[in-house]
């Protein structure tokens, strides 16, 4: 991994990093990735998943949940008429 790879990951994850932080992370990544690369050596027979995944449905009825709307709207960084206000996207 090189510094430009760290920069590319930070760009994808939308995280602002300083130069020092990038260097530190690069150093950590080298040792951590070298360690988890052990997964490549694991020999696995072609196992079918024994975990049967299925959807969990509930009845199509509306249930009142206890939420505090006020607490939610109060924490918006910016709002207008009770709506969340964000900067323009396009």
């Amino acid at each position: 991994m090189e510094i430009k790879d760290v920069e590319a990951l930070a760009e994808l994850a939308r995280i602002d990093l300083t130069e020092v932080e990038k260097q530190d992370l690069l150093k950590d990544f080298d040792s951590i990735l070298a360690y988890v690369r052990a997964i490549e050596q694991v020999q696995i027979e072609d196992t079918e998943s024994d975990i049967i995944l299925h959807n969990i449905w509930r009845d199509d009825v509306s249930n009142q949940r206890e939420y505090s709307k006020e607490l939610i709207t109060k924490q918006f960084p910016d709002s207008q008429d009770g709506f969340l206000k964000v900067k323009k996207i396009l």
Binding site: E21, L25, D28, I32
Partner: peptide, 8 residues
């Protein structure tokens, strides 16, 4: 941050 980037 470390884990977010490693996960990415």
């Amino acid at each position: 941050r470390r884990r977010i980037l490693l996960g990415t």
